[in-house]
Amino acid sequence: MSKDLPEVSDMSDPGGKSGLAKGQTILTVKNLKKSYGKLDVLKDINVDIKKGEVVCVIGPSGSGKSTLLRCLNMLELPDGGQILLNGDEVFGDGKPKNLDVLRREVGMVFQSFNLFPNMTAEGNVSIAQKKVRNRKGDFCKDRSIELLSQVGLEDKVNEYPDRLSGGQQQRVAIARALAMDPEVMLFDEVTSALDPELVKGVLDVMRGLADEGMTMVCVTHEMGFARDVGDRVLFMDGGVIVEQGKPDDVLGNPKQERTQQFLGLVLANG
């Protein structure tokens, strides 16, 4: 939904400029390590994300899946390894590099929404466009309203977050991340804090994004979503990727015993 923007002079930094074709590698993770004290949360993670791909990361609590996602955006600093975005090193030699570029091009949506309560829905979606992409006020506002309409919230443009339901807040958060025209979107258990009847609205928005070719990495417990929308499923446990492959293979016919155990538990519960 954010890919074919018109050329507008107000848009001094349109973003999303890699020009990669679908299927080319956009994000590369090599030998990524992260530990908290003596606890190794990520042990030598290697994964490539391709343009337009929807990768769903599943696994038990404490498996390191959220930490992996947060490392991709440097919200957690990895201890070692390398991360490349469009071939440019954004983490290497133990240090983040081109952090501004990384954060501009990689959008993130959180489990707890994290909307700014001191701004309206429109303000939430506009602020980073103005301050980071240096777009003009009117342009930001129009773009924000357009994005809020696309997530079904055209009547909530001027509401503050505390007047919105969890599902509506999460959809504003998705619009806010999309407003930066990111190359990759990261979703960190975005439906886990929602009431069951609100989950569908958020998943539908994500489905729409996937259909339009957005590159997405989703940490999720929604096995149905992973199966229907995911191009690839990663099963993580104990800080390693235990198994990965097409959703039907990993979810329907897992080869590893740990994957079988996990899916047995999850599917038995619903």
Binding site: N73, L75, R103, V106, M108, F116, I127, M180
Partner: peptide, 27 residues
């Protein structure tokens, strides 16, 4: 102010100063 506020602001590409100015300090 919850930690997630700074995380959300920084994840949008805002600098520490911008995040403080527009998100954290007003709250």
């Amino acid at each position: 102010v919850p930690r997630g506020q700074m995380e959300a602001a920084r994840s949008l590409g805002m600098s520490h100063g911008q995040s403080m100015r527009f998100v954290i300090v007003p709250q």
